[in-house]
């Protein structure tokens, strides 16, 4: 086959912990093969070498939390043919979106000795709230297998195999015995998108909802059941208010409990 031109890849960071970018570096076995297929043009976590835009694919990590972010993401969009957001911060605002439910002014006053240096928005929001996004890859952090699949699909001009159904389907395929049914453990699996590889449920924990709401989440039915299992309204609220607190379905459900 004729050599195809290597697309230029950029990796951007907004408000985030860097864990999702690390997932790319964590593709140890596949990283060399990947660099043969794409040209890493901008990836500060991996290299100081920077190539100017425009870029064929941009991976965007992190949420929008400052006025500077708002401007920067528009520039990234302008420079990118395809923009793929990676991780719960970029797709839903991340754990830092907990600020959306409280007074940010109060936080700043409590935490910083010199609040006057802090220039921040009152909310943490998803990239797609600010610019158009071509594909959203969920997870806190993302799964490196899904990241490779998305890049792979992009390179080969096909649709990525990233299902939007519940985590339960993945659990059953993996032969995991349901924690909620067999042990009474509160679990967000039925309303959470699959993709993590049953990380928590495979280790006798309930699902924390890292991959955000599944395609048609019936959070009210799950919340009612969690209460039958003994959760208080506050417990239910806290379950829905974590890494994907600002994802619409989880945010709305959390607002009805407390």
């Amino acid at each position: 086959m004729a050599e195809r031109k290597r697309p230029k890849l950029a990796v951007w960071k907004f408000s985030s912990c860097d864990g999702c970018q690390l997932s790319l570096l964590d593709c140890e076995d596949e990283l060399l093969a990947l660099t043969e297929e794409v040209r890493i043009s901008y990836f500060l976590e991996a290299t100081r070498k920077i190539e100017k835009g425009p870029y064929d694919v941009s991976l965007v990590e992190g949420s929008i939390t400052t006025p500077h972010d708002v401007k920067a993401i528009r520039e990234v969009r302008r420079q990118s043919k395809a923009l793929i957001t990676i991780g719960a911060c970029a797709t839903a605002g991340g754990i830092q979106a907990l600020r959306n439910f409280k007074s940010v002014k109060e936080f700043i006053r409590c935490v910083y000795a010199h609040p006057e240096y802090i220039d921040t928005l009152t909310t943490s929001t998803a990239i797609s709230d600010h610019v158009s996004v071509d594909f959203e890859l969920r997870g806190c952090p993302i799964s490196k297998h899904q990241l490779l699949e998305v890049l792979n699909a992009y390179l080969n001009g096909r649709k990525p195999n990233v299902p939007r159904h519940s985590e339960c389907i993945e659990c059953k395929a993996n032969g995991i015995v349901c924690r909620m049914v067999a042990a009474g453990t509160p679990c967000l699996g039925p309303v959470t998108q699959a993709g993590c590889g049953s990380l928590c449920t495979g280790k006798d924990r309930g699902c924390f909802g890292c991959f955000g709401p599944m395609e048609t989440p019936n959070t009210a039915a799950l919340a009612a059941h969690l209460k039958e299992l003994g959760c208080s309204g506050r417990d239910v609220q806290r379950l829905f208010r974590s890494y994907n607190a600002n994802a619409e379905a989880f945010r709305k459900e959390s607002e009805t409990h407390g």
Binding site: C168, I169, A173
Partner: peptide, 13 residues
């Protein structure tokens, strides 16, 4: 439909 979570567990088991 008000109770069903469309999680698919029934079909898997």
């Amino acid at each position: 439909a008000a109770r069903c979570m469309t999680c698919g567990n029934c079909t898997m088991v």
